[in-house]
Amino acid sequence: MSTLFERIGGEPAVEAAVDKLYLRLMANEKVSHFFAGIDMNRQREHLASFLTYAFGGKTGYDGRSMRQAHQRLVEHLGLTDTHFDALIENIVATLRELNVPEDLITEVAQITESVRGEVLNH
């Protein structure tokens, strides 16, 4: 069976989704403040690399853990479930805009949901 990474369209699809997602997030007043002062090119690279791994496109991920990467956001900027919900909503909207089939969007949402506890340091 092919990986989600392959079924979604591989590297070009992941990169397009990441670019569109960050445009949405930067325009979303619920979450845009989390990206103030962030090198967005570097941020895009990190997310694309993580998603490639999470979707089965590579076997390892050498970035920080979800807990480590988001700890400052939780402790100093108040990252909560409300913000994580907004992330999922924006991911779904982005993938729909890119005409990704609903079954793949559901799979992506489930993968995203599976890291909620780590991201929010629960």
Rank of each mutant, 00 (worst) to 15 (best):
G10T: 07
I8V: 15
E11C: 05
L98I: 11
H46L: 04
Q71F: 14
H46Q: 13
T112W: 12
Q110S: 07
K58I: 03
G56Q: 05
S65F: 08
E45P: 00
V74P: 12
M66W: 13
S49R: 09
Y61K: 07
L77T: 03
H83V: 07
T80P: 01
V31H: 12
M26S: 14
S49H: 00
F50Y: 15
E11W: 05
A13W: 03
E102A: 00
G57E: 13
R96Q: 12
S32W: 01
A13E: 10
H83D: 12
I38P: 02
V108F: 02
R72A: 15
N121H: 04
A17D: 11
I105F: 06
N121R: 01
G9D: 12
S114W: 09
L73D: 05
G78I: 13
G60H: 10
G57D: 10
R116Y: 08
G57L: 09
R116L: 00
L25D: 15
Y61Q: 11
G63Y: 03
L104P: 02
Q43P: 01
D81V: 15
V92F: 06
G56P: 04
S65Q: 13
T106S: 14
R44V: 04
R44Q: 11
S49Q: 09
M66L: 15
N121W: 01
S65R: 10
V119T: 11
G63C: 04
F34Q: 01
E6G: 02
L120H: 07
M66F: 15
G56C: 02
T80M: 04
E6D: 10
T3M: 03
